[in-house]
Every structure is written in C-alpha cells, then in structure tokens.
Design a protein around this nucleic acid. Sequence first.
DNA 1: GCAGCTTATGCGCATAAGCGCATTAAGAGA
DNA 2: TCTCTTAATGCGCTTATGCGCATAAGCTGC
Lengths: 96, 96
Amino acid sequence: MILSVLSALAEPTRLAAIRLLADGNEHCICELMPKLNATQSRMSRHMQTLKQAGLVIDRRDAQWVRYRLNPHMPRNITSVLKAVLDAEPEQERSAA
Amino acid sequence: MILSVLSALAEPTRLAAIRLLADGNEHCICELMPKLNATQSRMSRHMQTLKQAGLVIDRRDAQWVRYRLNPHMPRNITSVLKAVLDAEPEQERSAA
DNA sequence: GCAGCTTATGCGCATAAGCGCATTAAGAGA
DNA sequence: TCTCTTAATGCGCTTATGCGCATAAGCTGC
C-alpha cells in the first residue's frame, strides 16, 4: 500500500502534478498538460496511476474530468505526502 | 533528490531492509539475506541503491560490510523516512 | 600462498514502466 | 445528428528495473 504510494510519487511528472493539486483545488488534464509539459495521453495515464494509488480522486464535469487530492486519504498516507511535499524546497547535503 | 529517495523506498525488499536498519544498529548483508529471503547479489544491489539514495551508509569491518541508516540525512529526508516507517502498521481505508 | 568467508559486479534475460501515435469515448452545443 | 472539445485507451516501441548465475574482489587465519 505504502509501496504503491511511494512508486506513484517516485516519478517527476506525477510528483509535480501532486504539487499542483496540493493547492486544494480541482484541475483538469487540459490544465495540467501545459504546466507540466506533458502530452494528453501521458498526463492522463499519470493521473490514473495517482488515482490507483489513492492519492487523487476525479470527477466528471461536463467534458472535463476534474482531479484533486483525495480528501479521505488515511492519516499515515497524508503524513507521507506532507513530508514529501515539504521535502523538495530545502536542498540536502548528504553525508557519508 | 526526493525522487531518488522515493524510488529507493518503493521496492518491498529495500523498504523491509530499511525497517530492519531502523533499529539503529549495523547489519551486514549476510544477516539481511535470510531475514529478507533474498540472494546475496540481490541484497547487495538493493543496499547499493539505498546507499546511492543517501539513506544508508556502509563500513568495512573485516570481511563484513556493515550497513546502517545514514545518521546525517537531511532533515526533510528524515521526515519522509519517518512518515514512511510509521505508515505501514496502520491499515488504510481509502475513500472515493 | 591457500582456503574459506563475505560482498561486489559483469552479463544476459525477463518483465515493468513510460512514451507517442492513433483511435475511441463522453459530453456540449448548435 | 454533426462538430468540437476533453479525456481514456489499445498498440507497439524503447528503456529501466530487478533478477540469477558466475566470477571477481576484499579480508582473515592458517
């Protein structure tokens, strides 16, 4: 479970998409595509992956499909997501 | 960076190895192998992956190589790791 | 040096993952 | 119904990942 979440997040475009969805709003594929520099099919499939991992949910709205973060994620997954989203900005200096 | 950490953790054997190392002690490949039901080469390579991601460090000790969690991980990575390690036990009930 | 133990690595293979292209599906609006 | 927009999917291709096997490399003790 945590494994599917980790592998869903371990891809640049998907992680970037999650970052965009982290604003709490809904976003359609057509909006994410240009922002993430992805083609339509690519974007669509990545969103499916995120959906299967339980990270996002989608909703039909006319000809659009609106994606947003899953508001009912289990707490432990939310914690992981939060940590991951907080992780990026700071640059690391690893040791050893 | 966070991406390499995520993909390092997104593999069952590697995550299990991290869990074992999370006891704070050093562990050699020959100890991890039977516990994780992995062959020697498999185990060795997985540990290399974890090392490259900056999650573990190793140390030669006679004919053994002792692995342990990297004590100098950047804080944000430590947070992710902590969240991941805490995530497993609780079962999730996802919605939507 | 040699035998024995532990770990790393070269090699080839099988499978998974990611991608683009083209097509299909779903809906809106005329 | 026809057209347009948006999203999903089948297909084939390329690359990445994980694996076992065999071998090399590092170290110990005799």
